[in-house]
Design a protein around this nucleic acid. Structure first.
Length: 401
DNA sequence: GGGCCTCGAGTTCC
DNA sequence: CTCGAGGCCC
């Protein structure tokens, strides 16, 4: 079942509201639950919008941003222009390939829109407006701020380039921004400007320095008086209790964001176990493949990282993940899946079982508690009958929850 | 009261 | 990426 919604600009009055698109959602609860969510949004709805307003402006410069993982991102500085309700002066150019695709040059007149009515997006260059004073833009070999001699390298198999040196000031700065952000330690009132001031004053070098800041030091910072300092120290105190997944997120381990951190935390439960994990342990986690496993394993093997974690452990309290997140209904039960399930994928069935304390195995043995058979089951069903293991169809399986 | 800063909202692309 | 609200400094 599909139904239609209208959305409108909430800033406009109800009388002359502006329909800016249509949202189509699956409106059956059960199906919504089956579809679930991605890390960011429900999978059971999608918005269709009218074509975005397009304007033209001039690219005044192209500069580079360095992210916390050292990835270098080109950004166009634009002559400020009003589009879809706000003045836009910058737009990401994403990467080398996008610059090639657009063939954008400094001085070019470009067509700009806001994708989804929010994010500035350069659509194309108006080549007919060229005056031949524009210089074609060559992707650089070095980027200022990258550290060392500024060299950058393209990541094999990816569109991104990253700084060769990994401990540049710019990157450290970004790592700190991320460390204190909502996704990680969530230190209220500690935004980019405050981090910059702390770095400037030499008060923080490593993440754990945040937790040993003294009132006297903070009072010396520009625009920091009694009230600000007390508030900041209080937020830092509050942040000392942290879940394992947010702790993992805070470390800026390459390839590990919120979703992966959750998977890793749920799998190991405690930081000690994560630190002792082998490459195989990481790979065996649902949602973690070879690339991510490799990255995690290498990160925790690094001596400096280990020391950082040990120092952080002295400053914060990491809450272990409670076993069997949803329930322990299926504790001690081992399942084997065969055939195609109608309402969910096999992986989803596995997650459901694990979340309720059960285990999933690949082959039927006397230790198997249940075989779950979907459509066109394989030989596992015969094996189950031979061993006297109960076989559940999808309906019976769902009743367990 | 002006100015600086953080935060949340809305959302896309890679 | 920008805007507006709200807190704090000076």
């Amino acid at each position: 079942m599909i139904s239609f919604w209208r959305t409108w600009d909430k800033k406009k009055s109800k009388e002359n509201y502006l329909i800016d698109g249509v949202v189509i959602k699956v409106n059956e609860r059960r199906l919504q639950e089956t579809l679930g969510f991605t890390g960011k949004a429900p999978r059971y709805g999608i918005a269709f919008k009218f074509e975005a307003e397009q304007v033209t402006t001039v690219v005044e410069d192209i500069v580079f941003q360095i992210g916390r993982t050292g990835v270098v991102t080109p950004v166009a500085h634009l002559r400020p222009v009003l589009v879809a309700g706000s003045t836009v002066s910058r737009a990401t150019l994403h990467n080398e390939d996008e610059i090639r695709r657009l063939d954008v040059r400094i001085g070019d007149t470009v067509v700009l829109q806001k994708a989804g009515d929010v994010i500035p997006d350069i659509v194309r260059v108006l080549t007919e407006m060229r005056t031949s004073k524009e210089k074609s833009f060559a992707w650089p070999k070095r980027v200022e701020g990258c550290g060392g001699d500024g060299s950058i390298e393209r990541i094999p198999g990816q569109a991104a380039w990253r700084c060769v040196v990994s401990d540049s000031f710019a990157q450290t700065q970004r790592k700190f921004y991320y460390f204190v952000s909502k996704k990680a330690f969530d230190i209220e009132g500690m935004g980019p400007r405050v981090i910059d001031a702390l770095l400037d004053a030499g008060l923080i070098t490593n993440f754990d320095d945040i937790f040993t800041l003294k009132k006297g030091d903070l009072l010396n910072l520009p625009r920091f008086a009694e009230k600000s300092v007390d508030n900041l120290l209080e937020s830092i105190e509050k942040s000392r209790d942290v879940s394992l997944n947010r702790f993992l997120v805070s470390l800026s381990v390459p390839q590990v964001g919120e979703e992966t951190a959750r998977d890793v935390a749920a799998n190991f439960g405690t930081l000690e176990k994560v630190m002792k994990a082998t490459l195989e342990d990481f790979i065996s986690i649902y949602g973690v493949g070879e690339v991510v496993a490799q990255s995690l394993h290498a990160w925790f093997l690094e001596k400096e990282n280990k020391q950082l974690v040990l120092r952080l452990q002295k400053q914060v309290k990491i809450e272990a993940v409670k076993k069997a997140a949803a329930s322990s209904k299926l504790t001690g039960k081992t399942f084997v899946l065969t055939g195609t399930l109608v309402g969910m994928s096999r992986d989803e069935a596995k997650v459901k079982i694990l979340a309720n304390g059960g285990e999933v195995s690949g082959s039927v043995s006397s230790k198997t508690s249940y075989v779950v058979a979907g459509e066109n089951p394989g030989s596992k069903i015969d094996e189950a009958e031979r061993l006297g293991v109960p076989v559940l169809d999808e309906e019976a399986f769902l009743k367990l929850f």
